[in-house]
């Protein structure tokens, strides 16, 4: 009997593994985002006059776009957790919020006078925005990277990036309820930068931790 036959004999005596359950994984991932964000908002509170701010048609995009991106990247992440699966239309779901964000940025750039465009940019505002999103993303990114290892992505780097994207966009959606800077030139740029940073770090981590 060859060593491969021996290996097969041994493997065949192993008990079956628990079923792969994407819904349960999704629930854990969503909770990993929701809990830190809820704690953050409970401690610091949401912005004053949130309801009034939402009457400005641009402001809801601060929350809706990252939320949509988070849902789309979560869907894509779970889909790619099975070998041989294809991304399919979920890629377009992810591209949609990105395209709207870019349109908002260019729209704001075109409509605002030059001195107003980047008036809100300061070390303090950048630190608060980037720092908060990065900090809020740490726990969900770690949990999501951990949970997705139950799957078998044949694209570890991409799956890592999607894990980071899911975490960071989810965190951003929560943070946007606190943030008072409503200029798309500000929030698209700096929310986007923070999201990109988390996605890149998670892509590098995914390359190492999601191999199997």
């Amino acid at each position: 009997m060859t060593t491969t036959d021996n290996l097969i004999r041994r493997l065949a005596t192993e008990p079956p593994l628990p079923p792969f359950n994407p819904r349960r994984m999704a629930l854990v991932m969503v909770l990993s985002i929701a809990v830190p964000v809820t704690l953050f908002l409970l401690v610091l509170g949401h912005r004053q006059g949130l309801a009034a701010a939402w009457s400005n048609p641009v402001v809801p995009f601060k929350t809706i776009l990252p939320l949509a991106a988070s849902a789309a990247s979560l869907l894509l992440l779970l889909r790619l957790a099975r070998p041989g699966a294809r991304a399919g239309g979920a890629v377009w779901l992810l591209a949609g919020p990105g395209a709207v964000a870019v349109a908002l940025w260019f729209g704001a750039y075109a409509l605002r006078a030059a001195p107003e465009r980047f008036a809100e940019v300061s070390a303090a505002s950048l630190g608060e925005c980037l720092g908060s999103i990065l900090l809020l993303s740490v726990v969900p990114a770690a949990v999501i990277l951990r949970v997705i290892r139950q799957g078998a992505s044949t694209w570890p780097r991409l799956s890592g990036a999607l894990a980071g994207l899911t975490a960071a966009t989810g965190a951003t959606a929560g943070y946007s309820l606190f943030c008072t800077r409503d200029n798309p030139l500000f929030f698209v740029s700096w929310y986007g930068a923070a999201i990109l940073m988390v996605a890149l770090v998670c892509a590098a981590l995914g390359q190492r931790t999601l191999r199997w």
């Binding site: 491969t4 097969i8 493997l11 079956p16 593994l17 792969f20 099975r82």
Partner: peptide, 20 residues
């Protein structure tokens, strides 16, 4: 070659529950 075959069989074994 046979070492690689075994690696692949082990991978299938470890991830067999991911097949829908």
């Amino acid at each position: 070659h046979e070492d690689i075959v075994q690696d692949v069989l082990l991978a299938i074994h470890l991830k067999r529950q991911t097949w829908d």
